[in-house]
Simulated assay, not measured.
Amino acid sequence: MTKKYDKEFKIQTVRLIQEEGKTVAQVARELGLHENTVYRWLAEFKQDGANAFPGSGQLKPDDNALRDLQKELRELREENEILKKAMHYFAKDRR
């Protein structure tokens, strides 16, 4: 079973390295974590800052915005297709 760590724990872990100058190996040993886990958290924090570690099932704000725009685009394309079909249907009636 995989342990789950909350966002605050991950941020505090990263701060031990960045602000207190501890090594990844030292922090991992002190907290009982695998070094690779700490390296991954460090990389995520460096890349995304305050938006890192959004939580289970949550998206980062940029990913969430992209998903919403993709959904809107699909819906608009569907509506456009319906309108095209309706236009052709009504155009036939006029002849």
Results as ranks from 00 to 15, higher is better:
R74K: 15
I17R: 02
H34S: 00
S56E: 14
A50H: 04
N80R: 13
K46H: 13
K85P: 01
I17E: 05
R67K: 15
T13E: 04
E79M: 12
L59S: 09
L42W: 01
Y5I: 02
M87Q: 12
V24F: 02
E19M: 08
G32M: 03
Q18N: 13
K84H: 12
Q26C: 06
K92C: 06
Q26R: 09
P54L: 05
K92F: 05
T2Y: 12
V38E: 03
V14Y: 06
Q12E: 12
E72K: 13
R77S: 04
Q70Y: 07
R94D: 08
E72M: 10
T13W: 05
T2I: 12
T23P: 00
L59K: 15
Y39P: 01
N80E: 11
K85Q: 15
H88Y: 05
E19C: 03
D63Q: 14
K22T: 00
D62E: 14
E75Q: 15
F53R: 02
Q70N: 12
L59G: 06
E20I: 03
D48G: 00
Q12D: 09
N36S: 13
Q18A: 14
R94N: 10
Q18I: 15
N36V: 06
Q58F: 13
E8G: 02
D63W: 09
D93C: 01
L33V: 03
K85A: 14
L73N: 15
A86N: 10
Q18K: 15
S56H: 11
L16S: 08
Q70T: 12
R15V: 00
D68Q: 14
P61K: 12
L16Y: 02
